[in-house]
């Protein structure tokens, strides 16, 4: 409720005014929607012929179309999962080398991170698909997409994890060293697990980005969800309807994922708040 500080708690008059204004705005929005629908109808965009295959289960092509689109969606999810898993592994390795290694090595990692962060992900994908075959590395198209996405996202995940490790209180590593752990043990059993947990919301948000970016597979002709949609449009001639449905699917999946991120964030903050109170309660015992 931080926003309500911007305006007074409405009195009876302000409430009435707000009601009329809301009514006006709502009516304007409805009018705009109605106008859009009428325009769509006039141009023959609301016919069962255009929408039926996408939303009507009794339509003859419904099953075939969704089977076709489903294959694409499955490929999208597979590529996203694979790219995310690889990015996590490589990102963790990069974050650890940047924190622990010798100075010259660290600078090399910083260079790679800054370079990959500065280039567009679509270029990274195109680069992988064109340059790797030239170098004699022939892979299925899906792998070029995975490699491009991983190159771009692993450095971002490395930065997220590094921020997570650096934000931990010094006492964590000091205590671990004090009980005789080695450097590797400190990193893997004390620092990394905590960094992963505190950065979980940011990592899930990055998963949304990866999922959206798989649609860039079209530049290298990979048949993911959007590309399958494109192909179906050539057959059914319904760009508006098909892209609308594709957008809805993406929005639903990604919105669900970002809700998961928000939910974990709440849970984590509640848990750490609980941890803080127990510490505070314990403090007098030491005195």
């Amino acid at each position: 409720m931080t926003n309500s500080v911007l305006y007074e708690t409405p009195g009876p008059r302000a409430k009435r005014r707000a009601f009329y204004a809301s009514f006006g705005v709502g009516a304007a929005l409805l009018a705009a929607a109605a106008w859009a629908l009428i325009q769509l109808g006039r141009r023959g965009q609301l016919t069962a012929e255009k929408w039926g295959p996408l939303i009507d289960p009794t339509n003859a092509t419904f099953a075939t179309l969704w089977n076709f689109l489903g294959q694409g969606l499955l490929r999208t999810l597979q590529v996203a999962a694979l790219a995310m898993a690889l990015s996590l592994v490589i990102g963790t390795a990069l974050a650890l080398t940047r924190i622990t290694s010798a100075a010259w090595y660290r600078w090399a990692v910083v260079g790679v991170v800054e370079l990959l962060r500065g280039i567009p992900v679509v270029i990274a994908i195109f680069f992988a698909a064109r340059v790797l075959p030239e170098l004699g590395i022939d892979l299925p198209t899906a792998w070029y997409l995975v490699i491009g996405l991983t190159a771009y996202n692993s450095v971002i995940i490395a930065e997220i994890l590094r921020a997570g490790i650096l934000s931990l209180p010094r006492g964590q590593s000091e205590a671990a060293y004090a009980i005789g752990m080695r450097r590797r043990q400190v990193l893997f059993s004390v620092l990394l697990p905590q960094a992963f947990r505190s950065m979980l919301p940011a990592l899930i948000s990055q998963l949304v980005v990866v999922l959206k970016d798989t649609s860039l597979g079209f530049v290298i002709g990979y048949q993911e969800f959007v590309r399958q949609g494109q192909i179906s449009i050539q057959e059914l001639n319904n760009p508006i309807q098909a892209y609308f449905v594709i957008a809805v699917v993406f929005i639903v999946v990604n919105y669900a994922l970002s809700r998961v991120a928000v939910f974990t964030e709440h849970r984590l903050s509640r848990r750490s708040a609980a941890g803080a109170t127990t510490l505070a309660q314990r403090e007098p015992v030491g005195k």
Binding site: Q39, K212, A247
Partner: peptide
């Protein structure tokens, strides 16, 4: 915000490039 943050830019662009001409 919900629509444009969760929808790939690719789909937004496809919609504008191929959907809008259908509407004249």
């Amino acid at each position: 915000v919900t629509v444009f943050r969760n929808c790939p830019l690719t789909v937004v662009l496809f919609f504008m490039a191929f959907g809008f001409p259908e509407l004249g």
